[in-house]
Simulated assay, not measured.
Amino acid sequence: MHYPKTKDLQEILDRVEVCLEEGLPFALYRKPNDDEIFGIFQADATLHHSMDFTEKGFAFAPFDSEEKVVLIQPDDIWKSEFHFEASLATNSIPLDESGQEAHINLVKSGIKEIKKGRLQKVVLSRKIEVTVSKSPIKILKTLLNKYPNAFGYLFHHPKVGVWCGATPETLVKVKDKKLQTMSLAATLPYIENEKPKWGKKEIEEQQMVSEYIGDKLAHTMERLEMDEAESVRAGNLWHLRSEVRGTMLPNLKVREVIRALHPTPAVCGIPTGEAAQFIQANENYKRTFYTGFLGELNLKAQGELSLFVNLRCMQLENGKASIFVGGGITEASNPESEWVETQNKSKTMLGIL
């Protein structure tokens, strides 16, 4: 294990620059509410995969749980302090109305499927492409400053591409067989000095996710506790979140926990198998790593991991950024409101660019 070498932040950023130019894999990240930034660097361009989450490194997993999980090997681990700088207010962001009809039709077909009784909930998303002039490092710095309570990262593998994001959602943390996860759902825009007013649809949506996680984990845990839902702010949005804690059964393998949790109902739907099929058949693009997960595997100790759902993220290639926005659809959903919700969510990442 290469213990993190403490470096000057600029030295880490310079190395990242070189890796991007020379096509070498790395992951640079900061955990929520933390003032340290870590760089995991792999010495060559080989594409490695994690087979069962017992390997050491940085995992980058796609939405489709049948596909392989990319692993950046920790040939070098560097860390530095990251000092938060208050971010400037963003100007109002021009939103693109193209894609409205297609998204509304997608939502309508989701609601139809729910009414047939095949699904309780399905999360439907779309991709927005914009031209970008900012460098990946500049984008990451903006993300880290704007969203200190998110998991902020920049990932690169020449055979996979460049991704970055700031996600508010933990998939799972495990340490000494103690597990932490969360049930996160529902969205309202943040309005200065106002508490969010949750409607029946949002409360039910979040309860559905909590119950689903409880059911999925019940057989893997010695005990499981779930907190009441509370409102949490993520940038210009509110969500409902319940913290979940448990103690894993002694002989339980981490991969079984990950399999039980990914993809979560918050990014896929309920039941997840049927929802994933519907998404793959009906969304007009392939999600690849959006709504997958990423994070540390066994870097501090075997069996210790810290994984986050890949939300609020973008893929950067050839001067373009692809941004992804979606929402949870239930029988109570209104297709036009769902379109507006994706427009509101798009401001998060468009504001960064």
Rank of each mutant, 00 (worst) to 15 (best):
D14S: 14
L20V: 04
E296S: 14
I191Q: 13
V325A: 09
M226D: 03
G165V: 01
E67H: 13
T54K: 15
K200R: 12
T131W: 04
A45E: 09
Y153F: 14
A45T: 02
L47D: 01
P32C: 05
G161E: 12
G246Y: 04
A275H: 11
K68I: 01
H157D: 13
T348C: 02
I352A: 02
P168Y: 00
S98K: 13
R126C: 00
S346N: 05
L28K: 10
E304N: 15
K68W: 02
D14Y: 08
K200Y: 10
P265I: 07
M1A: 10
T181N: 05
Y212L: 11
Y285P: 06
F289R: 10
P74K: 01
G269H: 06
L143T: 01
L47Y: 04
E192P: 15
Q315E: 15
S346Q: 04
T142E: 09
K173A: 10
H262S: 07
R241W: 01
L350G: 03
K347P: 02
E211D: 13
G269F: 06
D96E: 09
P263V: 09
G269M: 00
Q120K: 15
F151Q: 02
F58V: 07
E202F: 13
D8F: 04
F53L: 11
L124V: 07
E341F: 07
H103S: 00
G328C: 04
P168V: 00
I128A: 00
F308T: 09
Q315M: 14
N33T: 08
V244N: 05
M51S: 13
P4T: 08
D96Y: 07
H83N: 08
D8Q: 14
F41V: 05
L143A: 03
E204T: 08
Y285R: 06
K197M: 14
L305Y: 07
Q280C: 12
D34L: 03
V107N: 09
G235V: 00
F63M: 11
L106M: 09
S242N: 12
G319D: 02
E85H: 07
E17C: 13
P4H: 05
L353I: 08
I40V: 15
D14A: 10
E296Y: 12
H49I: 12
G165L: 11
L171G: 11
L249C: 08
L305P: 00
L224P: 05
N334K: 09
D215K: 15
E211F: 10
L350N: 03
A186Y: 06
D8P: 00
F289P: 03
E202G: 12
F278L: 03
P74V: 00
Q73I: 10
L13H: 02
W198G: 06
L88Y: 06
L124R: 03
L184A: 01
Q207L: 10
